[in-house]
Nucleic acid binder design. Structure first.
Lengths: 216, 216
DNA sequence: GTCTATAGACAGATAGAC
DNA sequence: GTCTATCTGTCTATAGAC
């Protein structure tokens, strides 16, 4: 899961370096979320970070290196949340928490979700080394948690793999498609309260749909 | 819902014109689905359509005009499917059919779904004239169908608006994120059978989650 | 209607002074 | 570490011959 590409190695990062790298990564996230890898402009990222364009190439080898760095940050965040689920958990409680965590992520870091979405929609060429055999094994291990719940009679025998896609698709939709959601519901942005209502509805339907009783 | 931008007006379209326009629209759909509006290249579209680059500007005013034409085709297709739902329908049967129709759309026209997804993720600037007051009214009318089912005691009192987002997000996920779905499940592409299994699982969970009994 | 040639803007990347 | 100036290639769009 680690394919960070540091521009320079060995030396301990100075305070200036850390601050500038963070500013660049933030500006890059916004630009890549809006235009994807190919459509993004290094010049626009430099402007957003408040630095001359040449400095980007000092901190990151090139456009692709910067893009990979942004993607890595996102993916680590996602995987750690999903790893919290275990076969020993109560499925109703665990799924409620997971849906809530994913929705919180969609609320707080929508740009990160969008960069990932754009990359996948574009064919995911930059993630070929991420989707390794190790990743497939990891995913199957995650699906096995759901299967364990089913085998223990704790939930309906739904297809675990498709349940995962349902969880991912429905929660990320609130980050990736928030523009559409706002327009049709006459909002300028999704508030914390809007997201709470959305999260509750989603939890209610999915839990009941899997034969689970909501937790108090 | 109609903002087609013909490059030339009045005259009846010749056979050559129709054929070339179709070839351009198809190539444009592929290019825009992969790179979004800004990242797409008119040169690549021309290559894909088997025409010199200058001919694109003969048939379409400019890059934006071509993009709008592609987007229009997509949106008309989506809306007509959603319009099929009425308050008089049996909700279980209607939702089953709608999910199936949306999944069929994700299977047969994934590129169209991706162009729309990219546009929304990018902020939907090109769709501002699409999301009018008329559209909001239309969307509320659609949500009212679900509310009618609820008021008639035919289904659980879920939030109709969020149910719609769930239906859209979960079905479009199979078009937009098919790359990721294929990678984690070790497939090269999603077969008709894969999509049938996905559709059945989705229908099962959502129907039960809304307090509906699957139709025979 | 078709296609070659090209204009003019902007892309990513780098050299080299400070 | 920072920043100006610039190189090279690609972008959209168009002019004008056929």
């Amino acid at each position: 899961m680690t394919f960070e590409v540091p521009a320079h190695d060995g030396k301990p990062p100075s305070r200036i370096r850390q601050k500038n790298e963070q500013a660049i990564l933030k500006a890059a996230e916004d630009e890549f979320a809006r235009y994807g890898f190919k459509g993004a402009s290094m010049n626009a990222i430099a402007l957003g970070a408040g630095l001359p364009k040449a400095n980007l190439h000092y901190y990151f080898r090139n456009k692709l290196g910067l893009y990979i760095a942004v993607l890595s940050n996102i993916i680590e965040l996602w995987d750690s949340t999903f790893n919290a689920l275990t076969a020993e958990d109560d499925p109703a409680q665990a799924l409620t928490q997971y849906i809530h965590a994913k929705m919180e992520f969609s609320r707080r870091q929508p740009q990160a979700s969008r960069v990932f979405a754009m990359e996948i929609i574009s064919g995911g060429a930059c993630l070929t080394e991420y989707f390794t055999q190790d990743y497939i094994a990891w995913f199957q291990g995650r699906a096995a948690v759901f299967q364990a719940w089913i085998d223990a009679g704790k939930m309906d025998p739904v297809d675990p793999v498709h349940l995962i896609f349902l969880l991912w698709g429905s929660t990320q939709h609130y980050a990736d498609f928030s523009t559409q959601i706002c327009r049709v519901s006459g909002r300028t942005h999704l508030t914390k309260q809007d997201m709470q209502v959305a999260s509750d509805n989603l939890t209610r339907i999915i839990l009941k749909g899997c034969g689970l009783t909501p937790t108090a």
